[in-house]
Computed example of a mutant assay.
Amino acid sequence: MLAQPPLWFVAIAFLCAIGPLVLFHELGHYWVARLFGVGAEQFSIGFGHEVAGWTDKRGTRWKIGWLPLGGYVRFVGDMNPASQADSHADLAPELRSGAFHLRPWWQRFLIVLAGPVANFILAIVIFATFFLAFGMPNTPPVAGGVQSGSTAASIGLVTGDRILSIAGQETASFEDLRRIVSIRPNEEVIIRFEREGSIRSTNARIGTEQRADEFGQTYQIGLLGLMPPEPNFDRMSIFEAVPAATVVTAKITRSIVDVVGQIVMGQRSVKEVGGPLRMAQVAGQQASLGIFDFTYLLALFSINLGFINLLPVPMLDGGHLVFYAAEAIRRRPVSERAQDWAFRGGLALLLALLLFTTVNDLATFGLFERLGRLIG
């Protein structure tokens, strides 16, 4: 078992993880805005008091805030970093042409959408780079063996069976099989498989296994009990690697959606929801394992950041997209009063979620258990 990395290392790793992801996200907004001629007053990585910064020739203030838990681009005419329109702003005529909120709804929609899309693109670039350098894992979804007493054995799977789909999701590779099964411990699913040219299907309850990572932290995983055949890695050109990386990114996003659905439906404990402290710990752990583990984690973090920002919550990009879609349907903007109340509610929700996940993180670290022993 490996020792936990020191706190200073965790802090540096977290900054090295969250900084580039936020930068890439905000650059997505910024570059599409520039494409449409929208002016940017501020580009900030982090919140709060400015630690360092400079102003470019276009008048944009690039700065780094002391609290590195996000970032924003403040466009001409914005009231705040959430890009609410400043109805009291008296814009000079030369600035009105570059004001974000005076642009057509579809331009605003694309500018906001560009942030999450940039995070998905970053993940695709990372995966494509791995595939070019090492090949893409593409082991056939064929049973190389069946573990005695496992779910696979109980439903009659045998060596040589090709798994076609699990829980309605196609298993094009053994890696797909692992991904689908791992997030479904104790879940009832339908498994389709091929044996000697005959396609069959059966119901099965995925098994569960308690595992520990390199740092001794335990977690529960779904287990079918199939052993893989000989691992296979496909060498790729860049024209093959990018589409393959896009498919992998889409599949990981689908897994995130599935896990969120499980939490909402009560199939998973809300205690599994982590926040910034847990992210920092994982970043430090993966960085201590090496650059490849850390870079792979960046791809996963980037996908999560893109997905979370697409949620229809005011204050997030997804909330803005909902307002612009409503504007397109109604052919007039949502009232400022309604937007203001929505943003207030969204802010309260995000703060509550931050508090909840922080408590979860501290519980995961064993803080409350240690306090209980001290009090007792």
Score class of each variant (00 low, 15 high):
P6A: 11
A13W: 03
C16S: 06
I18L: 13
V22K: 02
H25K: 12
Y30T: 06
V38A: 06
V38I: 15
S44P: 12
I45R: 02
I45H: 00
G46F: 01
F47S: 03
G48R: 09
G53L: 09
W54D: 07
K57T: 13
K57C: 03
K57H: 14
R58Y: 07
W66G: 08
L67E: 08
L69Q: 07
Y72S: 07
R74W: 00
A85Q: 15
A89T: 09
D90A: 13
G98H: 12
G98I: 02
H101V: 06
R108S: 04
F109Y: 12
L113G: 01
A114V: 12
G115Q: 08
V125F: 10
A128T: 06
F131E: 01
M136Y: 00
P137V: 08
P140W: 03
P141K: 00
P141W: 02
A143R: 00
G144D: 02
G144P: 03
S148T: 12
S150E: 06
S150R: 05
V158G: 02
T159I: 10
G160S: 11
G168D: 11
A172K: 05
S173Y: 03
L177I: 07
R179K: 10
I180H: 00
S182H: 05
R184H: 10
R184C: 01
E188L: 12
E196C: 00
S198D: 12
S201Q: 15
S201I: 06
I206K: 01
G207W: 02
Q210M: 07
R211S: 07
F215V: 09
T218P: 01
Q220P: 00
I221C: 04
G225A: 06
G225C: 08
G225M: 06
P229Q: 14
D234E: 15
E240H: 10
A241D: 07
T246D: 08
V247Y: 12
A250N: 02
D258E: 14
V259L: 11
I263L: 14
I263V: 15
M265K: 15
G266W: 09
V273A: 07
G275H: 04
P276R: 00
A283T: 11
G284Y: 04
Q286R: 13
F292S: 14
F292I: 13
F292L: 14
D293W: 15
F294N: 04
Y296D: 05
L300N: 00
S302Y: 01
I303Q: 04
N304Y: 06
G306F: 04
V313F: 09
A326R: 10
R332V: 07
S335R: 07
A338C: 07
Q339I: 14
W341Y: 12
W341C: 09
A342C: 06
F343L: 09
F343M: 13
A348M: 13
L349H: 00
A352M: 15
A352T: 13
L355E: 03
N360F: 05
G366L: 06
L367N: 07
E369I: 02
R370K: 15
R373P: 04
I375W: 12
